[in-house]
Nucleic acid binder design. Sequence first.
RNA 1: GCCUUUGUAGCUCAAUGGAUAGAGCAGUGCUCUUCUAAGGCAUUGAUGUAGGUUCGAUUCCUACCAAAGGCACCA
Length: 585
Amino acid sequence: MVDIRDIVIGELEKLSIKATKADLNPPKDIKNGDLSFFVKDKGFDIANLKLETVSHPYIEKAVLVGRFINFFYSPKYFQDVIKEINEDPNSFGKNTILDGEKVIIEFTDPNPFKPFHIGHLMSNSIGEAISRIATWSGAEVTRANYQGDVGPHVAKAIWGMMRLGMTLPEVTEKYWNKRRILDFFGLASWFGAKVYEEGKLMKHFREREAILKIGEAYVLGSSSYEEGSRQEIDEINKKIYQKSDPEINALYDWGRKVSLAHFEEIYAKLGTNFDKYFFESESAPLGMFVAEELLEKGILVKSDGAVVFKGEEYGLHTRVFINSQGLPTYETKELGLAKMKFDQVDYDKSIVITASEQTDFYKVFLKVLEFANPTVANKTRHISHGMMRFAEGKMSSRKGNVITGESLIADVEKLVEEKMKDRDLAAAQKREIMTDVAVGAIKYSILKQSPGKDIIFDFNKSLSFEGDSGPYIQYAHARINSVLRKAKEQGIKPCLEHVENPGELEHILVRFPEVVERAQLELAPQLIVTYLITLASTFNAYYANNVIIDKANKSSSYRLALAEAVKNTLAVGLSLIGIRAPEEM
RNA sequence: GCCUUUGUAGCUCAAUGGAUAGAGCAGUGCUCUUCUAAGGCAUUGAUGUAGGUUCGAUUCCUACCAAAGGCACCA
């Protein structure tokens, strides 16, 4: 399919006007056509424009309003787009902005031994959307997840685990071993599905319990750290790096494993997955190597027993790279990470998505990276998203007042379940839809606003199933699906023979590719969100005013084709923002 | 104190320097014997303050006010 903007640019050229794609915008009101160009050049003789010379099968007319030249697409264009969408539903809206580029995108970054909270949900939703949009723009995307499996927070959790006298590792370990043996001989299912299922439930239960308990241990360790147990915890921190204490090693290995397994469960629910996992335990030694080099070069300097970067000369602030105990801090680990990423993926662009509290830190880090590796520094871009806050104040996992991702999803699922109780669907299917709708509602509330702004989180207000919400779009999609199914039963097929005059729905529909392109250029998933809600709402109005399935109406098959094209576009759009589109709900 | 970000309707959010600032929620009044009412229709309501740049500013600049984040051994 041609890009209609190229055609319009060609027509403008005939009128001696030079325009780029960025100069062409859809008017706010569709009464003003499909694309408009604003004549900025005041010297241009606008009165003698010969708009009647504009001629192309896809352009019906061009009209001058004030200094706007408004282009109206022809019915033929709408037909061809609908045809194209339905013939190849899974490539509508693709563009070539990032054709052939390798892009690595780091997001989510939860820390083992700490809860996966709604802030991680935010990072994940935004990162996943940006990854998918980049893929749609022709990039080869590597999703990266960087996890802090060493450092003071881990020491705090381990200290807390010891204080709580956690014996869970033993029990769980024994259980896992038993199961592993059964699995190895392929006997697990042979033993009987019932026993196996019970085993799975037990495992799930124990892991859940373990996660909660580790969370508790972390909070205990954090508060004790500030109240005098600092030395003990620092000591544990050192031992974790050195792997010198068998008891700590055992707790550590187990806790790390349970945490990571738990994260995977959440990723599966969210519909996200990662190509590369990086760990601070790996980046730390590499980073130390780089930091030592920078110290020799004089980029980093010693100060009060620590190794620091004096950022003030660059309008930044001073940050510690190696602390006075000789251990690497976050900034040094980040140096190691940059090296690991580039060594493993020979990328053209590297995007890192974190919460906005890290914005200033990242500026300092990038400055240092410029000295260590200018090529890599220039390819790296940091995007920050806002923080999820409660009305009452900041959420802090150190204090334990967090909403975990898991509990939020579970709570929303309950609301969806209540809404679906009268639907006649198989139990398994219902459960799946419940998750899809709950996750859709959560992701929508995150993605509908521009990244970078805080979300004031209020369970009752922030999540909705009506109006401006994820489920509203999913509902429109499911509804069209139902119409298509019923039409098929009655033997009516979508077809473009008896077309009707294009209305608002057609005009909105064909804009999708331009929206995706802008979303990529501006790294702004909310543009796709806004588009989808408009498309769904326009369809719902259409649906209320037009009977689609009607054997007496020749145009019924056209309406069906139009509905199908809307459904396909909603499905592609939802997938670009990482929201699943259930066939029924 | 310094640096960064954000201030749009009662609430939660949109709006690449351009046309009448869009939605949803809440409020009010309608709408299911008809393709899924998680729907549709109607209606009330907004750019923090003061300047500046521009033919044109929610958008760019300055000051002020307010909120959030950051500013040495957390991540």
